[in-house]
Simulated assay, not measured.
Amino acid sequence: MSERQPSLRERRRSETRRLIQAHAVRLFTDHGYDAVTVADVAEAAGVSAMTVYRHFPTKEDLVLIDQPARLIAEHVAASPATQPLVRRVGSALVAAATASTGGDGDELTADTKFLLDCLRLMVSTPALRARHLDSQYALQQAVVDALGEDASDPDAAFRAQAATSACIAAMHTALTRWVEDDGRTKLPELIARALTASFGDDAVATHQKD
């Protein structure tokens, strides 16, 4: 069965959302998060403040990236259930980072630069750090659900939560290093290195660590 293509209305909504977020991140980067208002973002994007709020309920949401969470959960769900939990989650984190940053090219793509700008804002802005923590909890739950462990088994659920939380913590360390390094080191490589340092050489597939 072929995948359903987005409707014209959905495509326009997605384009408007990307336009608003691009202007918001640019303004936050140039002038500082606290100095820019939602009205400023709306004016730069050529839309009303109501339109901004329709797409982004809070100012913090303008900086959050939700696509990687979906990618990670999809990769986890597609991984063999016979693999160790850490391998399933860790490999998904590396695969999603590869997809989000444009693969193996040496030059940063526009999407990768945008992701780097968003993460830089999250690291440097207290209000965004708190919001980012909330998103990490949501990611953890999405990954635990994707693992498909028997929810009626408390021990299995605990193991899934512990493994996922530890992998996400390793990823966060890699994201912080990526920002400090200004994107010079490939993000998938940093995540793989953080996972290997935490759990050993079997944390991710061998080809993902190369």
Rank of each mutant, 00 (worst) to 15 (best):
M1F: 12
S7W: 03
E10R: 12
R11Q: 15
R11C: 03
S14F: 07
T16Q: 14
L19W: 03
L19N: 12
A22C: 02
L27N: 06
F28T: 00
T29S: 15
D34Y: 05
V38D: 01
V41K: 03
A42S: 04
A44T: 03
M50F: 01
V52T: 04
Y53Q: 02
R54Y: 09
R54Q: 07
K59H: 03
D61A: 15
L62P: 07
Q67T: 13
L71M: 14
E74Q: 15
P80V: 06
P84D: 07
R88Y: 07
R88D: 04
R88F: 09
V89Y: 08
V89N: 02
G90P: 07
L93C: 11
A95Y: 00
T101G: 00
G105S: 12
E107H: 04
F114W: 05
L116Y: 07
R120F: 00
V123F: 06
T125G: 07
H132R: 12
L133S: 09
Q136K: 11
A142G: 00
V143H: 06
V144W: 01
G148F: 11
E149F: 10
E149Y: 06
E149H: 13
P154M: 12
M171P: 02
M171H: 11
D182R: 14
G183K: 05
K186L: 06
E189Q: 10
L190C: 01
L190G: 03
I191H: 02
R193W: 05
D201T: 13
D202G: 02
H207Y: 13
K209S: 15
